[in-house]
Design a binder for these strands. Structure first.
Lengths: 333, 333
DNA sequence: ACCGATTATGTAATCGGTTACATAAACGAT
DNA sequence: ATCGTTTATGTAACCGATTACATAATCGGT
């Protein structure tokens, strides 16, 4: 009985060749003779031999793994991006490690940037310290990005996306349009906020301070924003809102409906992300679609290119789309 | 200039000791003298030495990684479980590899069960082939499970959960209660379905074939079930439905609302999972809460216990809870 | 029949740590 | 002063593959 796992030398002995030949037979079959190949093949099957990856990786000075650093694994938005990443990395022979940047401490995250732990890093969190990630393994940033970190980025045009949303609401006749922003300091928040401000200005529409509501992308913060809005005088508060995330839009809509107001009769709402569920809530949400799976795919492909030594500087910018549903309507008379 | 990464022998030379001493100074400080420890520490800092994990793992015959096999990474339900897993594994010094069982082919999945790739396997997909996963690395099953695979399981009492849902609807006076099931063959589907049938029988309520609607947990399948329900004669179709997932419940409700019917006025609905969004849709969904983060945590802890050699046979069964919201009401008169 | 080129295979170093075992020094007890 | 014990450190084998280099065999050409 063989209690231990067979190693390459066991196969070699059984096949009557050297370990070097076995190694070649397995990883470069064209370099050994027909008969040897068959003998090795047979010995592999007889012993049930399976390659030890740790050994190969040590020799090759690579790990075969890519780490994704996610701000919040529980957030469906990110999981869909991860899904895109996984769909590219898997077939390419890499495996995907995932670390939640909230639950892991700084030292652990630093360790992930070690070449002996991962061959590359895909960053989905713009709040990480740039310096700590410098000069270790190749880095690709997706969605969010760390200002000052020179790495290929895969993103969407957040500014233009805000323009789409505001344009749509303005076209419906809304004159008082508000915005619920993401967390302060987040690069996406800033891009969407300034895009909103620009688009409103370009149309000569006002954007007073009290029409900008704080948020943090979460459902609860959307509900909180709704409470503020509900407390404002109906005559001056916005008749339409553009929110920086679908989650916030859901919270917002839920809260105003609870107070007996109707969407879009009393208030039009545009979200951001187009997460799956919002097509099925009532009313179905008008929103900006981010191609999440595609973002993940593109980031993974970018990473693979880096690992092959290709260095393309330019960012990958993926298109967004305004999805028209039933949460927006003409401004009340 | 040091182009190469420093290795342990570089540190040893600089500190004037052997590599063995350096190794001990770093991983078992109490086994070296005070002075040596300081000298090594200094040499480590001077060289910028960082441990090569591949080398250590080869020697230790472990990988430091746990693989989670997920049926669908894009599904928020699973991402929250993963989040729970990550929160336990990270602090314990393990990293989390994730593979999507849909995008990966069979051979790749088999590779994940290799001891040289991962120290353990957490399975969230009950449709995997049991035999392929046997006898390689420790396995823990969470949520779903593979019939016939002898491994510790972390799950909820699906049968009892169905009883809670049916009991609630029956208490509201509903006499015709239907069920939208998950995909055929899924262990969860079967447990929830038989729990439903039992609970109905226990109350003397009928459960004719046409009150059982096929589904596959997805939003679309919920909408499809709604279409079937809408086509049935109002006098005999169910006045209340228990659906095996929240996603299906959303699809179902969205569709019946689109046809002008009211929830819960015309129809009461109970979902399953309590995903975050359903508290904010309209009407807020009455549902069975699964403690997802907790399931992930428990599975990870179970895995750590396995790796320490503890073998506890019994399954971990976590409690579910009926969350009362506004999608259920008294049966129409 | 001889020689350079090609092909197939073996030998042994290497990747970068860990650790069993050996050795030497220091210590306490008789 | 002697001996057993403990403590600190070094030597070298080992984890399990890959691969540069060496060697032997085969082949085609003259």
């Amino acid at each position: 009985m063989k209690h231990d796992r067979p190693k390459i030398s066991d196969v070699a002995r059984l096949a009557g060749v050297s370990t070097a030949t076995v190694s070649r037979a397995l990883s470069a079959p064209e370099r050994v003779s027909e008969e040897t190949r068959a003998a090795v093949q047979q010995a592999v099957e007889a012993t049930g031999y399976r390659l030890n990856l740790a050994a190969r990786n040590l020799r090759h000075r690579r790990t075969g793994g890519i780490v994704a650093l996610v701000p919040n694994l529980a957030n469906p938005f990110f999981s869909q991006i991860l899904s895109g990443i996984a769909s590219v990395l898997g077939p390419a022979g890499y495996n995907l490690l995932i670390a939640d940047t909230r639950t892991a401490d700084a030292q652990t995250l630093l360790d992930y940037a070690e070449p002996s732990r991962a061959d590359g890093l895909i960053i989905l969190d713009g709040t990480l310290p740039a310096t700590a990630l410098q000069g270790r393994v190749p880095v690709v940033e997706a969605c969010e990005w760390v200002p000052g970190l020179p790495a290929p980025r895969v993103k969407i045009d957040n500014r233009a996306a805000a323009g789409l949303a505001i344009g749509h609401l303005a076209d419906l006749g809304h004159r008082r349009i508000g915005h619920v922003a993401g967390p302060r300091g987040n690069v996406l928040t800033e891009a969407r906020l300034s895009g909103t401000a620009e688009a409103l200005a370009a149309r000569g529409l006002p954007f007073p301070e009290e029409h900008l509501y704080p948020g943090d992308f979460s459902l609860d913060s959307g509900r909180e924003a709704a409470r503020i809005w509900l407390d404002q005088p109906a005559a001056t508060r916005p008749t339409a809102l553009f929110l920086a995330s679908d989650a916030m839009a859901c919270g917002f809509i839920g809260e105003v409906q609870r107070h007996g107001l109707r969407v879009p009769g009393d208030l039009s709402v545009v979200g951001f992300d187009d997460i799956e569920l919002v097509a099925h809530i009532s009313p179905p949400l008008t929103t900006i679609r981010q191609p999440r799976t595609e973002i993940g795919r593109a980031a993974a492909e970018r990473m693979l290119a880096c690992l092959k030594g290709e260095t393309r500087e330019a960012d990958t910018v993926l298109p967004v789309e305004l999805i028209l549903r039933a949460s927006t309507g003409p401004a009340p008379a």
